[in-house]
């Protein structure tokens, strides 16, 4: 049995500047934030990020790690607009490939199944076609003759995911209400790294949830890291919900460079353990 457990530093140390990185979860839900924070601490730059975007995209933008965002939206859900992404867009700091969210899923599906594209109606008539001049349409070879958008495969070098449980081999399990598109990222990427709330024995996985919750097969996974609180401040149900107070602090700090510098100093100047400590302290101060 191969033991694939790694530290977040080892995972991030295996990445290279200029890579295309897919990030699982959705908006401000079950995002691999421990890995995102580790990227922010690293020397990586010029990343292309493929994501149903949320705090992951925002934080990477705030640290200048991203040169290109591929996304249908970037949102914090309970706070509709992600302030750091807004700044990055409004200052021209990032290139943006903007797709409809169904198109985006078809791009993932195509990549996950080694297809060059998949056809869809989504996108037709909208300015998604205008702002992505490389997008092509394809005509059905059958009687209907329909002309549809050919969504190109969203291939990626690496996928980063956070799940509730995993074993040391890389089998990974979600226990919350929604798998999001995490399995498609795992299949679409050349390498996939999974962080989880808790590493358990393989035999322990089905004590945690039903067989349908085994979302990711070890054949898709290169490395696993246990990072309790690794999705914080996004949701990781049922282990924890979104830390709304912290998210408000994160979003509020974006409005002012001095406030953001103070936020960085307080929470993001150390490693993941220091971050989790700072979060605990903040919670104790204002319950």
């Amino acid at each position: 049995m191969r033991d694939k457990t790694m530290s977040v530093e080892e995972i991030v140390g295996s990445l290279e500047s200029g890579m295309t990185i897919g990030i699982g979860g959705w908006g401000s839900r079950r995002k691999p934030m421990a890995l995102v924070r580790a990227i922010c601490r690293s020397a990586l730059e010029d990343l292309t990020v493929v994501s149903y975007g949320g705090a992951d995209v925002g934080l990477l933008c705030a640290y200048g790690k991203v040169s290109h965002v591929v996304a249908p939206f970037v949102t914090l859900d309970s706070i509709p607009l992600e302030p750091h992404f807004r700044i990055a867009r409004q200052t021209g700091a990032v290139r943006f490939t903007e797709y409809d969210e169904g198109m985006f899923m078809f791009g993932l599906l195509a990549a996950a199944h080694r297809l060059p594209f998949l056809p869809t109606r989504a996108g037709l008539g909208s300015d998604v076609m205008r702002v992505n001049p490389g997008l092509r349409t394809v005509r059905s070879p059958y009687e209907d003759g329909e002309e549809l958008v050919a969504v190109p495969a969203l291939t990626m070098d690496v996928a980063l995911l956070h799940l509730n449980r995993a074993d040391r081999r890389g089998n990974a399990q979600y226990l919350g209400p929604d798998p999001y598109l995490d399995d498609l990222y795992a299949k679409a990427a050349g390498r996939c790294y999974v962080t989880c709330e808790r590493v358990v024995d393989t035999a322990g996985l089905l004590k945690e949830g039903p067989v349908q919750s085994l979302l990711i097969s070890r054949s898709m996974v290169t490395g696993v890291a246990e990072t309790p609180g690794g999705a914080h401040f996004t949701t990781c149900e049922p282990d924890y919900g979104r830390d709304e107070a912290f998210q408000r602090m994160y979003a509020g700090a974006a409005a002012d460079p001095a406030a953001w510098a103070a936020f960085q100093e307080r929470f993001l100047s150390g490693d993941e353990a220091a971050y989790q400590d700072a979060v605990r302290h903040a919670r104790e101060e204002s319950p």
Binding site: F73, L81, Q90, E98, D100, E101, M103, R121, L124, V128
Partner: peptide
Amino acid sequence: SQLLGVRGAPG
């Protein structure tokens, strides 16, 4: 002003 992105509106 960057807003949400097109989300699912086109489809």
